[in-house]
């Protein structure tokens, strides 16, 4: 069987896919990749279906030996990446020759990096998915010595790249009013959208805590609400007034009120914001939110047409300063390569 042998690996590395839908009534949330857009990008770069399993990495990656020629793509948070010691480009697809060693990590921007393989990871499926659901103990983190089976690959395309988007450094996140938004006074809602939050280091696949200066956002009604359903992107306000953005691996229900819900297409911006990054929330109407999300869904489906040949990969140039890149002055300090 084609496989990637895990020579060593960081602490937060796990197999994910788009998760397990259909178990809400049984108390199990969908789970799956934290940054769903990155999964779509990997599928576009490898020209394969979006439901193949991928490797999700938090902060650090690991090193992996290919037992066969295997196509790979790298998406999400940028990590240092090399094949047998030579740097390879992020947000791109490559061939990993049989016997070569891929080294990944640590992240340089964002939070979650992804490794995709042609044919997808063919690890055991539980309840119809391969996604690791850490909070409920479904599946296990990847460990040194594991061998990750890789499925049959029906394509041969490599050397494609996608434009980098802006979701890795915080920014403005659009939210829609939700079932309990009206339980918060207008003053609290206004202060909430006027506040610049910082992503707290305390974050996991269940949710992300948002820090801010000044008063919290608690509503007196919070004391009496009945526990209610959670959807990914819900912003719950805990008893002390702190917002948490809930993610795909949250519990199915929660007893804290939700001030609003992040649009699914903006959730990757929350997920990828590194600790300390600034985030702000902006309400849009349900009607506008539906239109924005529908447009984003259709753009995600068209990523494949945006994947373009990787013409020249500066990261692979052995001696960068020997290249006359644009015929002008080449500075080792001000690197134009980091600006594209």
């Amino acid at each position: 069987m084609r496989a990637l042998r895990v020579l060593n690996v960081g602490p937060g590395v796990a197999i994910q896919d788009l998760g397990r839908a259909g178990y809400l009534a049984k108390g199990l949330t969908r789970g799956g990749a934290a940054d769903v857009r990155a999964v779509h990008e990997g599928a576009a770069l490898l020209r394969q279906a979006v439901d193949f399993a991928v490797l999700e990495m938090v902060g650090t990656g690991g090193s992996f030996e290919a037992t066969d020629d295997i196509r790979i793509a790298l998406t999400g948070a940028t990590m240092t990446a090399a094949v047998d010691g030579s740097a390879v480009a992020w947000n791109a697809s490559h061939i990993l020759p049989k016997g070569s060693i891929l080294t990944l990590g640590p992240t340089r921007d964002g939070t979650y990096g992804y490794l995709h393989v042609g044919g997808g990871f063919d690890t055991p499926s539980v309840l119809s998915a391969r996604a690791t659901h850490q909070s409920t103990g479904l599946g296990a983190l990847v460990a040194t010595g594991d061998s990750l089976d890789v499925g049959a690959d029906r394509s041969g395309d490599v050397g494609l790249t996608l434009p980098r988007d802006s979701r890795f450094g915080g920014g403005v996140v659009r939210i829609v009013p939700s079932m309990q938004t009206d339980d918060f006074d207008a003053e609290i809602r206004m202060r909430f959208v006027d506040t610049t939050f910082r992503r707290d280091p305390r974050a996991n696949r269940q949710g992300v805590r948002m820090d801010s200066d000044g008063d919290g956002f608690a509503t007196p009604k919070a004391l009496s609400i009945v526990s209610e359903v959670i959807v990914p992107g819900d912003i719950q306000i805990t008893g002390d007034g702190t917002p948490f953005v809930l993610l795909a691996e949250s519990q199915t229900t929660g007893g804290y009120p939700r001030i609003g819900t992040v649009l699914p297409c903006d959730l990757p911006r929350v997920v990828q914001a590194p600790a300390g990054a600034e985030l702000r929330f902006e309400f849009v109407s349900l009607e506008d939110a539906a239109a924005i999300e529908a447009r984003a869904q259709s753009e995600w489906c068209k990523l494949r047409s945006l994947a373009a040949p990787l013409v020249r990969d500066p990261a692979e140039m052995q001696d960068l300063l020997s290249y006359q890149l644009i015929g002008g002055v080449v500075s080792a300090v001000h690197s134009p390569l980091d600006e594209g």
């Binding site: 829609v176 009945v226 959807v231 819900d234 999300e293």
Partner: peptide
């Protein structure tokens, strides 16, 4: 009520 863009909730009471 709508719950984000994720679905629709029908609620039958404000107490359990």
């Amino acid at each position: 009520r709508s719950v984000g863009l994720g679905g629709v909730l029908v609620t039958f009471g404000d107490k359990a």
